[in-house]
Amino acid sequence: MISYKNTHLQELENEAIYVIREAAAQFERPTMLFSGGKDSIVMYHLARKAFYPAKVPFPLLHIDTGHNFQETLEFRDYLMKKTGGTCIVRYVQDTINQGKVQEETGYNASRNVLQTVTLLDAIEEFKFDCAMGGGRRDEEKARAKERFFSHRDEFGQWDPKNQRPELWNIFNGRKKMGEHFRVFPLSNWTELDVWLYILLEKIEIPSIYFSHEREVFNRDGVWLATAPFMKLKPTEHPVIKRVRCRTIGDITCTGLVLSEASSVEDIVAEIAQTRITERGGRYDDKRSDTAMEDRKREGYF
């Protein structure tokens, strides 16, 4: 199916495979961050393509907040078994038990910020010098300035004003001891590109991306799932709705959309028509205008 005119999806795929191979070649101990969400599933699919017929030459790393959707965890284990991949799991609960962080309290309590500490601990524990992530530049304005190869200092911090210039496709992953890199193979993908690719490549995804019945409640215009650790305000009442996830994060901050989309085709059609950004339903971004930049500076995903 070779034509001299590459489609945009072919170009994005070729670029992402190139970036993943570059990370595997330039770093001694790379890892790939895996959340069970569609972006990390696509990234892992590309990694399998990049090294076939050899196995993916690095482990995946999942930071389990303890607030994940059960379907996501089941899917993670299923996918690893099916593809023969290795996924290391580290738990935010352990970080809390060690007294390194304190659980947030109140209605909007979330472990979203806490997981950065667990992540940096895991990077130190395994001496990872590169962590690939499924972050995309179109997701959020601070991410729009992110490099493919993004430097982190010995404290795991990002300095957005002092980023290395990145030209052509020559990536500079040189670093000092203790520093590491975040690498983003999907930088140039949009939400629609990810879904089109899932469709074309017939990639399996967790069931919660498709329409299903769930008990939800409405907070500030966002539908959130009920769970034992979710505190409802007196004015909030659980109802049953047909919903699906547009992004998958913690239950505490993942807004669900009312949807009847039951196939990837339906989802593509829905995404193409939607007028709200993907992260518009993410409670973690609503904390302030620079919520993402602040978290990224601290070493967030």
């Binding site: 005119k5 489609t7 469709l199 085709e265 028509q273």
Partner: peptide
């Protein structure tokens, strides 16, 4: 903007043929 209602499969087909 593509009108998705006219023909979803055709539209998806054209999306996959876009150049960059």
């Amino acid at each position: 903007v593509i009108d998705m209602k006219t023909n979803i499969n055709e539209t998806i087909g054209s999306y996959t043929q876009m150049e960059l």
